[in-house]
Computed example of a mutant assay.
Amino acid sequence: MKRFGAQIANHLCPGDIVALVGDLGAGKTHISQGICAALGHQGEVTSPTFALVNEYTDSTPPIMHFDLYRMENAQELLDIGWEDYLERDAILIVEWADRFPELIPEGTHCIHIEHLPQGRRLSYDKV
């Protein structure tokens, strides 16, 4: 999953959004780790489940890493400045993006991760 994330990173530009959708333990954070490492982040990458967003400003471009799992409604995402983050010259990675699809803008790179008995299936589409 980390290798896949690194491959994705090669195709991302400032302003891009990566929506990660999958069950608990599917590999969303591992994909995030691969993206962050490939873009130059040197530190640890953990799912911001309780912090809601982690900012990695040592990468090029900066990365804003969101986890929507614990949010109850879309207003909570707006309250932490979602619209301001969309205006930044950064890459946004959003775990559990399917929680509030109405706030995910057009042009978002969506990666769906599905558990299978023999591994995982990844699918990609652009919203």
Rank of each mutant, 00 (worst) to 15 (best):
V45L: 06
M71K: 14
M64C: 11
I35K: 00
H30V: 03
N73W: 11
Y69C: 03
E95I: 01
M71E: 00
T49Q: 09
A6W: 06
L103H: 14
A97L: 12
G5R: 05
H65W: 00
P14R: 02
N54F: 02
G27P: 05
G43H: 00
F100M: 11
P14L: 00
E87W: 03
W82C: 04
G5Y: 09
A26M: 07
G43I: 01
A51Y: 04
L92E: 09
C110E: 05
Q33R: 13
G22A: 08
H112I: 09
D84L: 02
L24F: 08
H30T: 14
D89E: 15
M64E: 09
I63D: 14
F4P: 07
Y56G: 00
V127K: 15
E102Y: 14
T108R: 05
M71Q: 13
I104S: 11
R70E: 13
G107Q: 10
A19M: 06
L68S: 08
H112A: 09
V21S: 10
I104G: 12
D79E: 15
P48V: 03
T46S: 02
R99H: 12
G81L: 04
P14N: 01
R88S: 06
P105N: 14
I17R: 01
T108F: 00
I63F: 06
A74I: 01
N73Y: 09
I8D: 04
K28I: 08
P101T: 15
R121Q: 15
V18H: 05
E76Y: 10
C110D: 04
H115R: 12
D79K: 00
I35M: 03
G119V: 10
L77H: 12
A26C: 09
A74Q: 14
L12T: 04
G22I: 01
A37D: 02
Q7M: 09
E114M: 02
Y124Q: 13
I113H: 10
M64N: 10
N73P: 13
I8S: 03
C36R: 01
E114K: 07
N10P: 01
F100K: 12
Q42C: 03
V45E: 00
E102G: 14
R88Y: 03
K28W: 05
E87K: 15
V21H: 05
A74V: 08
D98F: 08
E102V: 12
E102M: 13
Q7R: 15
T49E: 08
A51S: 11
R121M: 04
G40F: 06
L116H: 11
R70N: 13
L24H: 12
L78A: 08
Q42V: 06
I91G: 08
G107F: 10
T60A: 13
N54G: 07
E106T: 13
